[in-house]
């Protein structure tokens, strides 16, 4: 396994929609984003672990994060650097806002054309959308083959990568030439934790915007420290057709958003007392709900 690879992990900072509390929705039915912490999309961490495993296997391999989002999305790039990534790219511009999966995939693919990786790894899907579309669509935009639901990289040589995929009722092992897009399943190994030494080294890694906000002294401090520079790209830094970006480039439109309100069933309230549970079971048996 001597191949030196340039690996890009596609990652997204997402609101943590998994354990939504009662205060997650405002009275007017809109989402209260402030009540939801922004996290590293879980399956993108599985993807990062696969990339770092390849870095361990193939000496000289480099791993970069590519994310699209607001400036604060640089947090997940730093997080990835603390865990073992070499650096990252933040794609941020108002021109990207309102993008559906297709416009997102187009923007990411234009950035990838600049970065020229051998291997692109992404989480299967993001928890705020659950669409699983961006991986395959990035692959299509770049004209590359795709391997979805990857669970384990079996081997890598100069010609090809061999990957075990998790199917609904089984597993499949496939090979593909480079470059290729791989999406990783939640059933793949969890990501390694942050490393204390790396946290010390990279905690001041910043994007251009963050550097400007930090002031002149800090600019001088990082001047010769390229490893502390997170690449920040705006729309002008990638060669993209504006008609295919953001809201304008999104074929799908949101017609309507409804807060979820249900007409509650008329339910009978029972306690945990023996008498209540006993009469419930008698009723279920008598009504043939239970045989």
């Amino acid at each position: 396994m001597g191949k030196q690879l340039k690996v890009v992990v596609l990652a997204k900072q997402v609101p943590d929609t998994r354990n939504v509390g009662k205060d997650a929705m405002k009275a007017d039915g809109t989402v209260n984003r402030a009540a939801l912490p922004a996290i590293f999309n879980p399956e993108d961490l599985n993807a990062l672990e696969q990339a770092l495993t390849i870095k361990d296997m193939c000496e000289g391999t480099t791993v970069y994060i590519l994310t699209m989002g607001p400036l604060r999305a640089a947090d997940i790039i730093r997080d990835a650097m603390f865990r073992g990534a070499d650096g990252g790219y933040l794609l941020t511009d108002r021109a990207f806002a309102g993008a559906d999966t297709l416009a997102t995939s187009y923007a990411l693919s234009r950035a990838l054309v600049e970065i020229k990786p051998d291997l692109i790894i992404a989480g299967r899907q993001a928890i705020d959308g659950d669409t699983a579309q961006v991986g395959p669509q990035v692959a299509e935009k770049l004209g590359l083959p795709q391997i979805t639901y990857a669970e384990q990289i079996e081997s890598i040589d100069d010609r090809q990568i061999v990957v075990k995929r998790r199917l609904e009722h089984g597993v499949e092992t496939v090979s593909a030439p480079f470059p290729v897009v791989i999406t990783v399943n939640a059933s793949a190994p969890e990501c390694r934790p942050q490393n204390a030494k790396r946290v010390m080294k990279y905690k001041r890694a910043m994007t251009r915007s963050e550097l400007q906000a930090a002031g002149d002294d800090y600019m001088q401090f990082v001047e010769n420290k390229d490893y502390l520079k997170i690449v920040e790209w705006n729309v002008g830094d990638i060669d993209a057709d504006p008609a295919q970006l953001g809201m304008l480039g999104s074929p799908t439109k949101v017609k309507q958003i409804e807060n979820v309100v249900f007409q509650a069933k008329e339910s009978r309230k029972l306690t945990v007392s023996d008498a209540d549970i006993n009469s419930l079971m008698v009723e279920l048996i008598a009504g043939h709900t239970l045989g």
């Binding site: 069933k265 029972l270 209540d276 419930l280 048996i285």
Partner: peptide, 23 residues
């Protein structure tokens, strides 16, 4: 509870053994 025909307010670990027993 809005979907439920029967709402039992309590710990499932306490309720289920009773359901098993009385079934």
């Amino acid at each position: 509870n809005k979907f439920a025909d029967f709402v039992i307010t309590g710990d499932a670990m306490e309720v289920i053994p009773k359901m098993i027993k009385y079934y």
